[in-house]
């Protein structure tokens, strides 16, 4: 005799949580189908150009004399010219590797040049550039401020955030990542910040869905595994055994 209880539990609980289960399925499917490195926009930025250390006018030792408390001194190419980035705690300073002069903060024109130099598409066109000093959009951590927000034309709306002090692309975004971020919020049901997996909505709906799913598992057992599937399996085994016996005889 089949109990109707699992069917009732499954039906009535799913009435409350069915929509969220659908949202979990859609958001989960998007996340697993989209390559995480593509989502992170790693293809948007060209690899750094190579350095020529043989013709340096100044080297790390010269810079260290001026900044003895530096935690690190990095030499790299910025828009074709070698620069040193001196890191002291969270502060970063740029030093021109040809003149050893302190480089001023990145201007709008320099931010444009840096963005175009590093953008993967050499035909890329800048749609908008903004200076962000006080507040950061949700896709940018406030610790990176002040930055230049350089938005390129294109359906994916790729955007580089360039530090005003270091001239480095501190992060980048494009629409697939923005969609991922929003889907993540819907997946963990933290619609404001997308950070708290232990929020009360998530826990309540998860527990209800788990109960409903367990009831669904009982239904699967009642209607599939205990009947047709096992019967079919039993028939298959019997047929196979019979054929084997005939073959041996």
């Amino acid at each position: 005799m089949k109990s109707q209880l699992p069917r009732k539990i499954h039906k009535w609980l799913m009435l409350f949580v069915g929509l969220q289960v659908f949202i979990w399925s859609v958001t989960g499917l998007y996340m697993v189908m989209t390559n995480i490195h593509y989502t992170h926009g790693e293809h948007l930025q060209k690899p750094s150009p190579t350095l020529d250390v043989s013709s340096l006018k100044f080297n790390h030792a010269d810079v260290l004399k001026s900044y003895p408390n530096a935690d690190s001194i990095s030499l790299f190419n910025r828009v074709g010219e070698p620069v040193f980035m001196v890191q002291e705690g969270r502060e970063s300073t740029l030093v021109n590797a040809t003149t050893k002069e302190l480089m001023p903060k990145v201007t709008e024109q320099e931010a444009r040049e840096i963005a175009l130099f590093q953008f993967h598409d050499s035909a890329g066109v800048i749609a908008k550039i903004s200076y962000l000093k006080v507040s950061a959009p949700s896709e940018l951590s406030a610790r990176h401020l002040p930055v230049w927000e350089v938005q390129f034309e294109g359906i994916a709306s790729p955007t580089f955030y360039i530090s005003e002090s270091s001239g480095q692309v501190v992060t980048k975004r494009h629409n697939p990542w923005r969609i991922f971020d929003w889907f993540w919020r819907f997946h963990i049901m933290d619609y404001l910040h997308g950070e708290d997996v232990g929020n009360v909505f998530f826990l309540a709906i998860s527990i209800t869905t788990l109960l409903s799913t367990l009831a669904g598992c009982c239904l699967v057992y009642q209607r599939v595994l205990s009947n047709s599937f096992l019967n079919s399996f039993r028939k298959f085994v019997n047929r196979w055994a019979k054929r084997r016996t005939t073959h041996v005889n």
């Binding site: 690899p47 190579t50 350095l51 043989s54 080297n59 690190s72 001194i73 990095s74």
Partner: peptide, 17 residues
């Protein structure tokens, strides 16, 4: 000086101290 290591630093993209 890193220039003295230049033969070992061919194709380097960043050299940090």
């Amino acid at each position: 000086a890193p220039e003295k290591l230049s033969s070992k630093l061919t194709d380097a993209k960043r050299v940090s101290l």
